[in-house]
Design a protein around this nucleic acid. Structure first.
Lengths: 217, 217
DNA sequence: TGTACATCAGTGAACGCGCGTTCACTGATGTAC
DNA sequence: TGTACATCAGTGAACGCGCGTTCACTGATGTAC
């Protein structure tokens, strides 16, 4: 074989990696294949050695988030041993001020929902896959016997996505931060219902985080 | 004057009207000026008599939602007299199954957030304006003395948008409906805290609605 | 060890199409006189 | 009342550009003998 068998795979991964970041940042239509290939250190023509179409790459990029994002890695690290902590940590990462203000880190769930909703079947099911994974993590934070466990997991996901999606659209720093913070407090509060109840509105760690955000602005 | 002074205004409104529906359905890039003008019964060339660019029309379309959507009309009708009912009704309309399954009725908040987040300043501030309006309505449901009133309003908005944004992206009917329902229950529950508490998870009207949705599927 | 050959990741020019925008024109209308 | 004129919403052809996709080619590599 002309190249090592892993070589093509590594190139492909490199393309997907750059595509994911650029699609998240600028959306499906605003990123050209040329740009992506250039970012990956290649030229336009080679693209179709790896993918059958731009939409094909898009689905792949959405899918790739599952293996490459900091949330997923965090979950993998903390997942099985302490489900409640994993859920709490995921919420805190998801709704952190740092992530809100760095578009490149945005999860596809918040970065490209409109695009995906209008895209073909492949990107949509890649997206749905992430949704189910996150729901599993949140569901794990409640005892299996809790009849409202699934519902609470869904509410937490809705808060995570809703808070960030709206916050992202506005340039008003105060409104941004405040929408995000409200979602964070409520989500943590729902998670807190599994452990012995503390304050109704926020865990101590959320309060600490809030103070530090206020200092930053 | 060659045409009546209102004639141009009416034409302009007609263009914006069609643009709003089409942008919501297919996104900014996937709708051409040609299509919009055709839908409005005009030809390509006349577009620049009314708008300076496609982006200009986009901002206008987002803005227009405030005056033409069923939620806004509903709020205007119920608004001042009974703020709690207005908020409750808005939530129910927003998170209804009927709206979820009819893209044309989708509020820009859920239909085009990714597009807007990447668009210019004008569309973004048009979007932010709607956000503030909805927050006002929700805030009105809690007594001015309630220190958590603003936060609760933000949580409700996050739930409204989050639930619909995720639900929209998946084709799985069960998951769609269930995400939406979870958001609806939680939002109504938060609103319920103002009135004498009924059931913890849903108001009677929500339960009625849920049953009717289940029949439909 | 050396030579001829096959493979195929990557190159870069070219194609074709759609779309945002421009522009010279039309023709219906109201106004001046 | 009638006629010449100015206005301007709307028309449709044309321009120019970018981008997804195709394709003939290259040249580095491994294999056969």
């Amino acid at each position: 074989l002309p190249f090592t068998p892993e070589h093509k795979a590594r190139t492909r991964t490199r393309i997907v990696e750059h595509a994911r970041v650029m699609f998240n940042r600028k959306g499906f239509d605003q990123v050209s294949i040329d740009e992506i290939m250039k970012a990956a250190g290649l030229t336009r023509g080679g693209f179709y050695n790896h993918f059958s179409s731009k939409q094909d790459l898009y689905a792949e990029a959405v899918r790739s988030f599952e293996t490459c994002n900091p949330f997923a890695r965090e979950v993998q690290r903390l997942g099985p041993p302490a489900p409640v902590q994993a859920a709490r940590r995921l919420v805190e990462l998801y709704l952190s001020d740092a992530v809100l203000n760095d578009v490149d880190q945005h999860c596809p769930l918040i970065a490209v929902p409109s695009d995906v909703a209008r895209a073909g079947l492949e990107p949509r099911s890649a997206y749905t896959f992430i949704v189910r994974r996150m729901l599993e993590v949140f569901r794990g934070a409640f005892p299996a016997s809790d009849p409202r466990g699934s519902t609470k997991a869904q509410i937490i996901l809705n808060l995570c996505v809703g808070g960030m999606v709206i916050a992202r659209t506005t340039a008003d720093a105060e409104l941004r931060s405040s929408l995000r913070q409200a979602a964070l407090d409520q989500a943590l509060s729902l998670l807190g219902e599994t452990a012995p109840r503390r304050s109704r509105t926020a865990t101590p760690s959320a309060a600490r985080k809030r103070r530090s955000n206020e200092r930053r602005h």
